[in-house]
Amino acid sequence: MNNFSYLSTATAKDATAAVTGTKGAAFIAGGTTVLDLMKLNVENHAELVDINMVPFKGIEQTAEGLRIGALERMSDVGEHPLVVQNYPMISQALLQAASPQLRNMASIGGNLLQRTRCGYFRDVAFPCNKRQPGSGCPAQEGENRGLAILGGSKDCIATHPGDLGVALAALDAVLLLENAKGKQRRVPLVDFHVVPGSTPQRETVLEPGELIVSVTIPAAAHAKKSMYLKVRDRASYAFALASAAVGLDVQGGQIRSARVALGGVGTKPWRSLAAEKILTGAPATEATFRAAAAAAVRDAQPREQNRFKVELAQNTLVRALLELSAA
């Protein structure tokens, strides 16, 4: 870790001005990712601009759906009655993530920006294209048990580590962003994260100095009837080997609408429109679910150690759909 200066700001304008005006400056909210990576020398920021006082708060029902301020804490959102009742998938994704201590600190915006747990990325002694573009990707032929089978490239197969993003991808969430000039724009969650391709250092469409203001999730029957299933190496406090965020609107045994996203297997939160297409209009049976699961992983490119994820992701998705349709 390097020495750094610290600045606390109360408005988005001050914060973005500080970050764009100072070389090597970065935002800090809960700090659960940025401090971790600075201790590992993976990130070396000269200044941290604290945005915790910026009023990006609130959990409220709006005409567009549920609006959650980017600086709300994971624990508060996960336990909020509106979230628990109308978006159970989001509550479950949040409360199965990390530990209570981390959830009490980590913000919603920061969670969406959490960086990969790929061991090659987290240790500066290794080459890593994400950390040092062009240096190589030892994960391709190395310890890749936990890495992505979907959305990877020859330059990077780092898994998106989060759970919340997977749920938000499934439920058509839209992010509100604000840049240093005070200009706001809306970006659907599914377009917010990008696959690595040949530029794995670029993980989102966020521009320098731009902040996440809030996230809005439309109300829908498939959001109210939804769940998040997470499979991991231990019962709690572990990243997903595979997870499934599913929402179903079933009437008379027929699926009217469906939402599917996978976690733990993709380089970004992995919305599967192919699976949704198979589910929509089909009978809510295990056969349908199996077909949808097969479609969801059709493009999988497993490596030596993560081949099991192809089966695990499908089984996880099928299980989630079975449990949800039986509920």
Binding site: G119, Y120, D123, F126, P138, G142, E143
Partner: peptide, 13 residues
């Protein structure tokens, strides 16, 4: 996990 090429741990935390 010890990387087979670099003889370095990849999950040392």
């Amino acid at each position: 996990a010890r990387d087979p090429h670099y003889a370095r741990y990849t999950n040392a935390d």
